[in-house]
Computed example of a mutant assay.
Amino acid sequence: MSPTTPTSPATPATPAAPIVTEPEELTAAWLSAALGAPVRRVEREQVGTGQMGTCYRLRVEGDPALPATVLVKLPAADPASRALVIGAYAIELRFYREISPTVAVAVPTVHHQAIDLETGAFTLVMQDLAPAVQGDQVAGCTPEQARAAAVNLAGLHGPRWCDPSLSDIEGLAIQGPEDAALLAEFYGPALEIFLDGLGDLLEPATVETLRQTLDLAERWTLARGERFGLVHGDYRLDNLMFAPGLDGPDGPDVVTALDWQTLSLGLPARDLAYLVGTGLVPEDRRAHEEVIVAAYHAALASHGVVDYDLATAWEDYRFAMMQGPLVAVFGCAYGTRTERGDAMFAAMVNRSCAAIRDLGTLGLVAAS
């Protein structure tokens, strides 16, 4: 816990709070403006170790109507690093502001947001979901948690399934041939970096499967474009919060999704395959994946998706399993290496490559 910010006179609410990028700027006066109510004192502590920015929990004392705690996301400390990911920052704030009201996926309430699109400076103040617990990508999850997360995911995909107006949203576009060619061009070098760095943590069968994906990345990216929707892009356990449901400890968890910086348009089943393929150990996945896909499909129908039968959903799930290695390879190769990060990416790839083999994914992609 950092030292308590010195107590200052309560500051009247103002129409807008300035963008702040340093934790020292998260003062009582600033938070009063951001929340629109007087704050007397703030304590802060850093939460997590984000690579594209930082997150802080603020403990708030002031107006009785204020939440006791909030979370604040700030950009990367290095201005040069911010400039490289302005698009990711912008799409997350745009999601919370413009898109989340049009879908049914559970997300934190946003109390305040502001961004400078020229520099990448931004501030995002959100609901603190504690005592909900963050998922653990290394440890994996239970089949019941995977099912609850899949049903929540349908709330992202279903309400705007194949909605042509999605392409009107700045920052969202379906990947075209140039995008696919660029991904394929960089995938080979990224894979070599990945294998050199994590080789000892990978199963031999995983390495073989990864090499077999090399010639299929471009084809996979472009295939099945007739079905599209909002794709979180990194819908995995570390980006999900789990809380006991109203039915008690034996009922389904309430799942809330975080980190919308990788939002895009694409085949919706990419998120589903990524969640299940990277989150469940192979034994659990084999035993439960058909039930999870069926629950997701039923939830889609409850959100108005028609003309999409369960057999097609199952085939999309099998096809989309390449999302796991693609995201993990790029994330590891071009991100900051840490011991936990290495263990996480290795677990994700070992699990998802086992799924690729079990489900015949590469054959489906080659035939597309």
Rank of each mutant, 00 (worst) to 15 (best):
P249D: 14
L71C: 14
A217R: 02
A104E: 14
P244D: 08
D309I: 12
L156I: 11
P108T: 11
Q113I: 07
P325E: 05
L280S: 04
C332W: 15
C141H: 03
R270G: 14
A180R: 03
L93E: 01
K73V: 10
L117F: 10
T361F: 14
L359C: 13
V281R: 06
A301G: 02
V365G: 01
M321Y: 04
I193C: 07
F186P: 00
V125M: 03
A90I: 09
A366Y: 06
P23F: 12
A34P: 02
P177T: 14
A347G: 06
L84A: 12
A13Y: 05
Y308R: 12
P18R: 13
S264R: 13
D215P: 01
G233V: 01
L246C: 08
P101G: 08
V125P: 02
L359E: 14
D250C: 09
H288P: 10
V365R: 00
A146W: 00
T213M: 00
P131Y: 05
F186L: 14
A13C: 08
A80R: 14
G62H: 03
A149S: 01
T256W: 10
V365E: 01
R41D: 13
V72H: 07
A10C: 13
P75W: 00
V72M: 12
M321K: 04
R147L: 06
P9R: 09
R270C: 15
V110D: 13
L362T: 09
G199N: 02
L265I: 15
L124C: 09
T213K: 00
T256D: 13
R160N: 07
L31K: 02
A273P: 00
V276N: 01
G363P: 05
I19Y: 03
A80S: 15
S8P: 03
A37C: 08
E203L: 15
A343I: 06
G158L: 04
F122P: 04
D358M: 11
L275C: 04
R357E: 15
M1E: 10
A146R: 00
L222P: 07
I193D: 04
A154T: 12
G36Y: 07
T69Y: 12
A34I: 05
L191A: 02
D316H: 04
P18H: 09
V281F: 07
H232Q: 13
P64M: 11
V327W: 01
R351G: 04
L364E: 07
T221N: 08
M126H: 07
E61M: 11
P325N: 09
D358R: 03
T361G: 12
T256Y: 12
A33R: 14
P164Y: 12
R227G: 09
L201R: 05
V291Q: 15
E43G: 12
P67C: 11
A223H: 06
D163L: 09
S2H: 11
R270F: 15
L359S: 08
I356A: 12
T49I: 14
D234G: 03
A149Y: 01
G176Q: 14
E118Y: 08
A243I: 09
P79S: 10
Q51P: 08
F345G: 03
R82A: 03
A13E: 07
M241D: 02
F242W: 05
A17M: 04
S165F: 11
L201M: 10
Q51C: 10
P268M: 09
V365K: 00
L202N: 00
H297M: 03
L26R: 00
Q113N: 10
D163V: 07
F95V: 07
G171M: 14
C141R: 04
A287T: 14
T123K: 02
T14L: 13
Y274P: 09
I292A: 01
